[in-house]
Design a protein around this nucleic acid. Sequence first.
DNA 1: CTGTGACTTTTAGTCCGTC
DNA 2: AGACGGACTAAAAGTCACA
Lengths: 67, 67
Amino acid sequence: MDIRQRLGRNLRRLRTERGWSQEEFADRAGIHRTYVSDIERGARNPTITVVEKLATPLGTTVSALLS
Amino acid sequence: MDIRQRLGRNLRRLRTERGWSQEEFADRAGIHRTYVSDIERGARNPTITVVEKLATPLGTTVSALLS
DNA sequence: CTGTGACTTTTAGTCCGTC
DNA sequence: AGACGGACTAAAAGTCACA
């Protein structure tokens, strides 16, 4: 499966597990809410620094998000 | 340590372990020679699809490169 | 063989909305 | 609550000449 889709699925799963909306999570991660939506749908190709920003508020690792 | 520097160090280590020059590796990865140089020095912030291109010829994973 | 500055094209990433 | 579009700015992708 495409790495962007793997990231999207992992992100959505971990975010919803925490009961956060996309907007609430975006604020915690310091990125824009529409960008979170795009990433979860596998429609974007983020940089490694963005993936790190996603991992931090989730308390997970970059590797876990991309696996 | 910065994720870009971790990627750079891991990439350089794995590449040299295989006895490849930057140029030879770049050809295998389908990436430009100077771009590989930049990544190894932590001077770039690549996207996840680029990291995937790096991992493939090394026979390793994106996670390993970013860890 | 590798580093680096300069460069153009492409896309990452933001912000405004509407459905 | 989230999908999605348009327009925009910042930065990545990708290449080259030369040290």
